[in-house]
């Protein structure tokens, strides 16, 4: 992506895996957060919208709305975040904050992601008994749950776009995604084992393909 301007993002991925491709349309419009304070506000707002999972909201806010990341960068950052120990979205916030502003960025992103939701959940834990029995509350939670399903599914569909530009090609990508769905979704293997196995398989295949394409003139 050498043709695209850096836009002042430190350690931005000027030459990524897609360095041979022209600038994708969403790359040109990418912007950077102006200050750690803006990171804190952004992560607080997205964490507070995260009912039934923060990931889909994070993709929406960071990629589609604020344009701090492209879809490819989001997918790369999240792939790493989920393979590391720790909560995936918290790892994602940490690495993004660190990429933009170093240590202080990582800390404010972490604080933004956790502080406000922590106060809410502890307050709820203190007064939970009164809410649990209400049919209206149960119904509202059910409705929010259904929306969470839709958010997650829509994000999966959106992430198919960067997958189309993956150097491994559509067949190998489909096979790896399919194997993941079968092992984790259908057979219910523990993620602790399934994820490293799938990760190593994907890494070996990608390594072989990238090495071969690099040899070609």
């Amino acid at each position: 992506m050498r043709g695209c301007s850096n836009l002042g993002i430190r350690s931005a991925r000027e030459s990524s895996i897609l360095s041979s491709a022209p600038c994708p349309p969403d790359q040109a419009a990418r912007v950077a957060p102006r200050s750690p304070g803006e990171l804190f506000v952004a992560f607080t707002l997205l964490a507070l919208q995260g009912f039934g999972g923060v990931l889909a909201v994070a993709q929406r806010e960071l990629v589609d709305r604020r344009r701090w990341l492209t879809r490819e960068e989001f997918l790369d950052a999240y792939s790493l975040a989920q393979l590391l120990p720790g909560p995936n979205v918290v790892n994602l916030a940490l690495t993004l904050g660190d990429r933009f502003f170093g240590w202080p960025g990582a800390l404010v992103s972490l604080a933004g992601m956790l502080l406000a939701p922590l106060l809410i959940v502890v307050a709820l834990a203190a007064g939970y008994r009164h809410l649990a029995d209400s049919a209206v509350v149960a119904g509202a939670l059910r409705g929010m749950g259904a929306v969470a399903v839709g958010l997650m599914f829509a994000m999966g569909l959106k992430m198919l776009a960067p997958l189309r530009r993956n150097p491994m090609g559509p067949w190998i990508c489909s096979a790896l995604a399919g194997a993941t769905i079968v092992l984790v979704g259908v057979l219910r293997l523990p993620l602790l084992w399934a994820l490293p196995c799938l990760g190593i398989a994907g890494w070996l295949i990608a390594r072989a393909i990238l090495a071969r394409t690099a040899l070609r003139p």
Binding site: I17, L55, L75, D76, Y78, S79, L80, Q82, L83, M152, F153, M155, G156, M159, L160, P162, L163, N166, P167, M168, I172, C173, S174, L176, A177, G178, A179, T180, I181, V184, G185, L195, L198, G199, A201, G202, W203, L204, I205, A206, R207, I209, L210
Partner: peptide, 15 residues
């Protein structure tokens, strides 16, 4: 190779 190979696994996990 790590990010390339893991991307389809990540999308599979979203579904």
């Amino acid at each position: 190779a790590f990010t390339t190979g893991l991307a389809p696994v990540t999308v599979g996990l979203m579904f």
